[in-house]
């Protein structure tokens, strides 16, 4: 599974990458981008199976990235997990409306991440449409 981790803080990308590897995802298949704009360029250049993006980033925020993904024909089915600093209701609802598949609140453990990913893929499987 090819995963794109988007965060402007490289320490955080490294944390997410390591948690994903801990869950058994292949390290070489995980790529990183430091903001929404660069993420979009990468997403358009090669196929990905999952995006894990931070919310708060300069240039293009996570929510704008999410909206851009959903608006683009070739990307709109791509599962997006949003990383937020707090489970702020308004934010999560805005993200849900923009088409987010799941959210996870920092800091999180590998177990929580796994739960979130499982839920996302369960929902995708249930919808009968491959992402």
């Amino acid at each position: 599974m090819k995963i794109l981790v988007v965060d402007d803080f490289s320490t955080m990308r490294r944390i997410v990458r390591n948690l994903l590897v801990e869950l058994g995802f292949s390290n070489p298949l995980i790529q990183e981008a430091d903001d929404g704009e660069n993420a979009l360029v990468l997403l358009r250049s090669q196929p990905f199976d999952l995006v894990v993006t931070d919310w708060n980033m300069p240039n293009m925020t996570g929510i704008d990235l999410l909206r851009a993904i959903r608006a683009e024909e070739s990307l709109k089915g791509l599962p997006v997990l949003m990383v937020t600093a707090e489970n702020n209701r308004d934010q999560i609802i805005a993200a849900a409306q923009a088409g987010v598949n799941g959210y996870i609140v920092k800091p999180f453990t590998a177990v929580t991440l796994k739960e979130k990913l499982t839920k996302i893929f369960e929902r995708i499987a249930a919808s009968g449409v491959s992402a």
Binding site: G77, V80, S127, V129
Partner: peptide, 18 residues
């Protein structure tokens, strides 16, 4: 709550698919 939110928006489907 978030799950309920998604359910209310998509049923059991995934965002981006419907």
């Amino acid at each position: 709550e978030f799950d309920a939110l998604l359910d209310s928006m998509y049923g059991s489907a995934a965002p981006g698919t419907v």
